[in-house]
Design a protein around this nucleic acid. Structure first.
Lengths: 335, 335
DNA sequence: CCTTGTCCATAAATGCTTTCATAGTATCCT
DNA sequence: AGGATACTATGAAAGCATTTATGGACAAGG
């Protein structure tokens, strides 16, 4: 069943059928109805490949993320997929893992597949050197690139992000003011936003002259989901003689581990031990006491990202970089 | 840059270039090298749409799920995407929500987009009546359909699932034997696997003549993530006079709510109150004590599903239905 | 000299979009 | 009223970048 069959049955040319289908230019009501009737009756749908060939687009956006099963990334993907769909776009998903080579391979694959744009979900796509970010800069020569929670200054790449630095700075200051002096910073990612968060913590601590021991800044290198290993990491620190009565984590999972560590050490939370998470994920309300966490308005970010992308695809001038501020959601692990 | 440019530069016909690209039939080494060199030099990649038009496939599989941010579904999607990719297929993602109409719309959209197959992730796609399942049966006339954790007997649909009934039956029996008599079943989905799980619980309870009160089977109708509301639901039951000292949940989130409820009621867990979850998600190790949960070998299921799909696409006869057994992962909420 | 097989070019097919051309009709000006 | 002008509706045909069927040229073997 092709456009030719329809045109024949309706007694018009294929051009007219195409026009009816796309509403591109004027067709008389009578002709339109006749064509529509035949289409309806035959249950005809245009061949997507031929359509793609003609239009040079299939209205598809590539979504890349390191790991779609990560709680936070999964939420992001969900919102993005929904909003793309409501704009008439499909999304092809690419879980790249955390290696640079697979990321580069995936981005090229998406371009080969002729997506109209690519969204990079999560800050782990951005590296420190331009050399490493080359794969993004190059890709952006072909299609618009959108960065969620990251930032890269290059042509045709757009960033939408949360002000992690300020959120963390404020949150750290708040915890300090609440009376906790020895606050450990616990993070597991040196991605763009990871660095920014750490900087916020650092600024607050140094401002109050509390960063007495560099060991208070702790990088956790293990699996993102292995809560036991995280607890082990903290235990190790404690056994090595480091004293801390608060933990600010770059992520709710790490915060949760800190909370379990605190219970394990028989600290009363939050009276003797404070914990702050990041992302305000469902984990935050799953523990007891519930986790104070920083909400970075993921849905808002996604909404804005899609709006920007649609603008770019529509040929409009759009802002290269948009920053939203986060919010501390106070629950039971801080005072 | 088209195949014509390459053929011209290499001094061969476009057919030869295509043969080199696809290795379909014999090309002399000399010619092959010449063509490959030109391709390399020009950085040529074939146009995906034209290729799709010629081959009538773009090696793409549609993945449908109700909500990709659901912890369990997200894991499934992740595994499926990975395994598809390693088989040379891309995945287009469709988050449908839980309504029948949007599911039907999505499945048709995927077919229009000419995917080679569709994977339905999660049992919520299967309804009780054939009428409601019509959208799947019809879709399967166009492309092979794969069901993860569900079952439907129809041409061209294949099921890979965990034996939820037996898992639940065994787990319930185990909890009964451990001394808990008044076990509440807490579920939030009447999907295919939801029904099967409930049946397993029921069988065990009835076998021991313990299902004295129908209120022990409790459906929670609210949001899948709202732990507070779940706790509220349990509190309501308790206040209405229902006594229970164990909860078997159809899902780790519900189990977690039950655990928090128990703490709230100052029950000692597991001495005075037992909780059993399902899915063995990361939530299970995030709480304290950690949740005993049923692991249904998601990755194995996904692996098998993809193997089956690849077989079907390769034109092989494949099993219509495969069932794996689950496993109880004992942790701190049962004795 | 005929057959067989290898290598490759020509041409058709894939199913759509879009430009260009044209016939017909309506509007406007004198 | 008559012609110029403009606009609407439509068809013909030219892409778009591949794959594949067909068959021709040539070399080797009997």
């Amino acid at each position: 069943m092709t456009i030719y069959d329809i045109s024949e049955k309706a007694g018009v040319s294929i051009a007219t059928v195409s026009r009816v289908l796309n509403g591109s230019s004027s067709v008389s009501d009578k002709t339109k109805k006749k064509v529509l009737d035949v289409i309806q009756q035959c249950g005809y749908t245009p061949n997507a490949f031929a359509r793609g060939l003609g239009l040079n687009t299939m209205k598809t956006i590539g979504i890349m993320c390191a790991d779609s099963s990560d709680l936070y990334l999964a939420k992001g993907i969900y919102h993005i997929e929904q909003k793309l769909r409501s704009n008439g776009y499909d999304s092809i998903l690419c879980c790249t893992g955390y290696g640079l080579d697979t990321k580069a391979a995936s981005i090229n694959l998406l371009i080969t597949k002729k997506v109209d744009g690519i969204i990079l979900v999560g800050s782990n796509f951005i590296y420190e050197t331009e050399e490493e970010n080359r794969y993004i800069i190059d890709a952006a020569k072909q299609v618009p690139l959108m960065l969620l929670n990251a930032d890269l200054d290059a042509p045709n790449v757009y960033s939408v992000m949360s002000d992690d630095y300020t959120s963390m700075y404020n949150a750290a200051l708040k915890m300090i003011r609440s009376g906790v002096k020895d606050i450990l910073y616990f993070y597991n990612s040196t991605s763009y936003s990871g660095i920014r968060k750490l900087a916020g913590y650092r600024a607050a601590m140094e401002e109050k002259h509390l960063l007495s021991d560099e060991r208070l800044v702790q990088f956790y290198p293990g699996s993102h989901e292995d809560v036991c290993a995280m607890i082990g990491h903290l235990k190790g620190l404690q056994e090595s003689g480091l004293v801390f009565h608060g933990v600010i984590a770059s992520d709710d999972t790490l915060a949760l581990a800190a909370l379990k560590y605190a219970r394990n050490m028989h600290y009363r939370v939050p009276e003797e031990f404070s914990v702050l998470g990041y992302n305000n994920s469902m984990l935050a309300v799953c523990c007891d006491p519930e986790l104070t966490s920083i909400d970075n308005k993921l849905e808002t970010l996604c909404q804005h990202l899609i709006t920007t992308l649609m603008g770019v695809l529509g040929g409009n001038e759009m802002p290269k970089k948009t920053i939203f501020s986060g919010e501390i959601i106070e629950r039971g692990t801080t005072r």
